[in-house]
Design a protein around this nucleic acid. Structure first.
Lengths: 345, 345
DNA sequence: CCCGCATCTGACAACGTTGTCCAGGCCCTA
DNA sequence: TAGGGCCTGGACAACGTTGTCAGATGCGGG
């Protein structure tokens, strides 16, 4: 009676295995393996018999077992902040394309900007024995990754550097981009320029702020306290921050926004504002050219970030490449009108 | 001499195994397993010893082996068209969140609207023994999935129905949405209304076209050949199609666009056009409210699509749920100005 | 003091695949 | 025709984990 219910546990719905195929085709187990993997040394006739058995049973190789045996999973992990952010979509897609070119699948995870969740995700991916990791870090301490990297998990950080460990990283030139964007406003006659950015604990935000400060300093403009707003991220508070800068005794005549989400909110605020206010935003946004005025931005190529990182990852997996390296990609100032408005007041 | 190079093959960079931990802690293999999995029946003292060994060696359980043994991978696959499309980002994220709530990871793949690539991806995911699949189909024949589904891979289709097989599917009300959008234009006095959509072999495109035709018919307006443009998708050709409709002896006074990409291109064309032309687009687009005029759209909630599909998937995995079912989510008409323009000329 | 019971521990097989290695059959040549 | 090499096929172990089961240990009660 135990016979009838031999496989009572919830195993893959009783899928056929190579053993089953072998039995049906009347050949040995290894012969099936050879056919499945296209290895040489099988007579056309035998191969046909095996193939028929495979089709008849609907056999599909169990890659879990294969992975266990071979030690490589042909999959890489990507941990980012939020897949639904238009900045990360193209990045993710680019990583996927590179992975695909190397025959690997992509496992995706969103950290939601939470360091604990990032770590949880990364370690789960390591437990799956992904061959490599592309990480857009949320946290600033990645020592937990040291044993993993030592154990051979190729790891590349993107968009922001790793914290406390030495690892490959691919960045945009956040500092230079912001500096040039702000300098652009200054060149158009602005002196009272506001900056609204994310929390400075985020590397990109800090770098962009530094770019802002540097450009102002280079032009000999002292930055007033009220002109910078840091760490605001939700639309409500961005709105209030922008409105505060535009009111007061010495209102700003231009705003530099630290990322795409902030830019969008500020555009809304400016649309309701009476006086024209110049705007340059970090990150490009869709339809920016169709607004009145068009939105001038410092654009970074997120797909290129992803592609560069993924290629680096696979080169590391190939064994080429030695020491961790830092790659910085240039940004591009796209003038569309909003950044070229003269100071009003 | 073979001793020194015992593990020459490329195995996970010689990661420690439970056996190693057991040896170091001076306990049995199974005891380590118990500690790692938080199973009861281990003395605090023993547990501590094991935990120390784990930390010292940097041990991390190999989920590949675990999967092989347990039969469940705690991962699901998502196959969509293009992760970088703003429509799919939120969908993907929603699926991920549901998966996370069920302790599963998400493996992501882009089919690039290519049926062969879709099949290749899906089967690769099946070979990994994902527990379930969420598929936004590119092809229209999914019989290749039958053995997989029979073998227990829970499968839910989203956005478009499966071809040739009976399976769960979660859709937007493409027909009703398009019909209402076109009726909205008609209600504002338009009779010469153009339709620009994707290839009709894509289910959503066909349904939206049907909605257009139905609304026109209901209003007793015969549709002229020159008013509909199907299968154009790249911006160049969409542009030409729109321009053609706007020229000619009886130019359209309004256009209904079949998806977000088409809408964006048509907005550009209309921005350059002399006469105002009304526009309603299927799919919402970011910043649509800030354009002049605001863009009226038939919005679908892509995150909700993903969430619904994923929840269905996990209910199926739980064993609840019997027959495949078709769920249709409503769309929402958002009026912002472009759809309320009166006919010009 | 011994038995029974509860608690803790470990030996062993199995999951499905691939690498190694050897056996057998065939053909070719001397 | 015998011997050698080549080609094909299969037996077996191993990958790292978990489920089963039985052994060991300790403790309380009769």
């Amino acid at each position: 009676m135990a016979e009838t219910a031999r496989r009572t546990d919830n195993r893959y719905g009783n899928r056929p295995t190579m053993k089953d195929v072998a039995a049906r085709a009347g050949v040995g187990l290894k012969t099936v393996s050879r056919v499945v993997n296209g290895e040489p040394g099988v007579t056309p006739d035998t191969e046909r018999r095996v193939q028929e058995a495979i089709d008849a049973l609907g056999f599909r190789r169990n890659d879990s077992a294969r992975v266990l045996r071979k030690g490589r999973t042909a999959s890489i992990g990507l941990v980012l902040e939020d897949l639904s952010d238009p900045f990360y979509g193209p990045l993710s897609r680019a990583v996927e394309e590179v992975a695909r070119a190397h025959g690997a699948l992509l496992i995706n995870g969103s950290s939601a900007e939470d360091p604990d969740r990032e770590q949880e995700l990364v370690l789960a991916l390591c437990a799956r024995r992904v061959d490599g990791l592309v990480v857009i870090p949320a946290g600033d301490d990645h020592r937990y990754l040291e044993p993993e990297i030592k154990a051979g998990v190729a790891t590349v950080f993107v968009d922001r550097p790793a914290g406390q460990i030495d690892a490959d990283v691919v960045l945009s030139d956040n500092f230079g981009g912001a500096r040039d964007g702000v300098a652009h406003l200054i060149a158009h006659g602005h002196r009272r320029i506001g900056f609204i950015g994310d929390m400075p604990r985020i590397h990109t935000a800090a770098e962009r702020l530094r770019g802002y400060r540097t450009a102002m300093e280079a032009a000999g403009i002292p930055v007033e306290e009220a002109w910078t707003s840091l760490g605001v991220t939700d639309p409500q508070r961005v709105r209030r921050a922008a409105e505060a800068m535009l009111a007061g005794p010495s209102p700003v005549t231009a705003i530099f926004t630290g990322n795409n989400r902030v830019t969008v909110t500020v555009i809304r605020v400016l649309a309701e504002h009476s006086r024209p206010v110049a705007l340059v935003g970090f990150d490009d946004i869709e339809l920016a050219d169709l607004l009145q005025p068009g939105v001038t931005v410092v654009a970074q190529d997120s797909a290129q970030l992803g592609r560069t990182a993924a290629e680096r990852l696979f080169r590391r997996l190939d064994g080429t490449l030695a020491l961790p390296e830092r790659v910085e990609l240039p940004t591009r100032l796209i003038t569309r009108g909003s950044g070229e408005l003269p100071p009003a007041s």
